[in-house]
Structures are given as C-alpha cells and as structure tokens.
Design a protein around this nucleic acid. Sequence first.
DNA 1: GCCTTATATGCAATAATATGGCGTTTTATG
DNA 2: CATAAAACGCCATATTATTGCATATAAGGC
Lengths: 157, 157
Amino acid sequence: MRMLPDLDVFDLRLLAALQTDGRAANAALAESVGLSASQISRRLSRLEADGVIAGYTALLKPEAVGLTVLAFSNISLDRQAEAMDGFEAAVLRFPEILECYSVTGEADFVLRIVARDLKAFADFLSERLLRVPGVRSVRSAIVLHQIKHTTALPLSI
Amino acid sequence: MRMLPDLDVFDLRLLAALQTDGRAANAALAESVGLSASQISRRLSRLEADGVIAGYTALLKPEAVGLTVLAFSNISLDRQAEAMDGFEAAVLRFPEILECYSVTGEADFVLRIVARDLKAFADFLSERLLRVPGVRSVRSAIVLHQIKHTTALPLSI
DNA sequence: GCCTTATATGCAATAATATGGCGTTTTATG
DNA sequence: CATAAAACGCCATATTATTGCATATAAGGC
C-alpha cells in the first residue's frame, strides 16, 4: 500500500467513472477512460490493493426500505474521559447512527441518524441516545428537503 | 416502479449483502442470501427497476485523492425567497459540497463539505460560499476524528 | 378444501465479462 | 542516445451473468 499513490489522469478518470457507476463493466469503464479493458482490470486491482478504493456499495433509496427521517444531531458530553469512550462504543452499536464524528465548535460530536418516522426518531433519542451515560445535550437538525446528495468525492482531473 | 415495494427476507438479505459489497458476484450473493445465482440476477434486476437500488458506487479513501478536511457547515440565509433559490443553485455547482439539506432548528441548511486542506476550506468559505447572495451566516463544525462512517442503511431483517 | 392461475425457483445452456500471457510501445534513467 | 522498466493492446482462456424451461410453491376462486 503506497503512502502517496500518485494517480495519473487515467486513474482519476477511472475513479470518477466508478463513483458514477460502481458496477460498470470494464469495457464501459475502458470507453470513458480511454484505455483497453485489460488495463482497466489491472489498474482496478492496483487501486483496490493500494486502498484508494475502500470498497463498493449499493446505494438504496431510504424510503424504499422504510426510512423517512434523516437528522443531524449535535451532541455535547460531560467533561469526563470515560464519558467519551462509553459514548463512542454506544454509537458503534446503534445501526440508526450512520456516521459519527468529533468536531470543532459548540458540540462535541455530529451524528447522522436515520429512522422509520418521526416517532421512531424521537423514541431513539429519548430512550436510547439520551440514556447513554455522559450525554449532556442533543440538538437535532431534522432534514426537511434534500437539495444535494452524493457520495462522489470531487477529483481534480 | 412499485410505490410500496414489499421486500421479502431474501430481498433484504440481498440488499444487505450489496451494501456490504456492491460488486460481489451473483454466486457470492446467492450464498449469503440462500438462493441460486439465477434468482439473484432476477431479483437484482427487479430491485433496480423498482428504484429500491438507486445505484452503485465505489467508495474512495478521501486522503488518497488529496482530501483531508471534512466539515459540516450550518448556513443561515436572509429571509428572502430569491436568496434560497440562488443558494440552492450555487450549492449544486460546488463540487466540494457533497450534500445539502434544509433542516429544522437554528440553521436553514446543513452542508457536508470536503476540501484539500484547512486553507482550501477557509478559501472556499470566504471566497465562494460567503459570497453567494443571501448567505447571512456560516457556522462550521470541522471533523477532528471519524468514529463511525457507513453508507449502509439499517434493514430490519 | 380443491382446482386454477400466477409467481418463484433451480438447473443447464448461452451470452457477456474479466483476467492473464505475450509481444510491442512508451516512458524513465544513466 | 542506449537501455531498462513500466505500461500498453490484442487475444485466448477463465469466470460470471443471464435466460429458457420444466418443476415447485403460493394465492385466489368457487
């Protein structure tokens, strides 16, 4: 695994194509990259081995699997070392918490949370999250509209 | 496209497997679902046609493509209708803004922003985002540590 | 409850796709 | 400018996906 994988223009085009369609056939990728399919195969293996490509996933429509609520919750903890460890462990256990980051600013953590509906979200907050030891405050921004949503990182091609 | 795609246990297992590895071969998916590869192929086509599967993507390691800064920025706009339209159009144009939602709470919007480094992030804020007409305030939570990060939605299997 | 119809299934044949050898070309290095 | 190393495309082979089809399972009508 290279530390500084210097990606050439073909790599970047390939990554861009894979961010657009992670299941595209090598022949299709070859088309948009401008190389042969066999080279795509080889570069793909390299990018995976190097860890540039962390994985592949299917993107599901949340409503189709019964999830209508998305929220960003800002968490503040009590100032104790054990509070943080316990909180992080709890976060990993809750499947409705998709992401958790410690951040600068007023809050200690930002969470991305999904739930079936508003009631399920409220229940999760009051019966689960607020009961995690050390959690002092939770301020949630519930999503009203999605203006933009992509997992594709910008690549300077 | 069905409105209420009632997913059976095989569908849910298949979706779970695809969220774990979006490029898994049908034979491998068949293994974890408990069906034949041909059925996987057929169910896959159906889930794609129904829009349950919105797409597939490669997940890249941000550092490997030169992105070291992730932030969640909370935006407040001036109370004018045209401010909102202009802001949303601007958001769609900026590739460093991966996600944008209008939300409840103190802010009007939450943005997920990536940047090469702190300087690039600061420049983006001051030279781009703050110059979008109608933007009144930006409060950013810059990510210090990633505790959890997944795109996989929780499925009640 | 049984018959009918629609849907789902696994198997096997076929089609599509990925991979690796190999000779050639390009790029980097002294 | 010569040489070595890396990358390339083509092609043959291996792997994987898809579809026809006969059988099985589940749903609806009477």
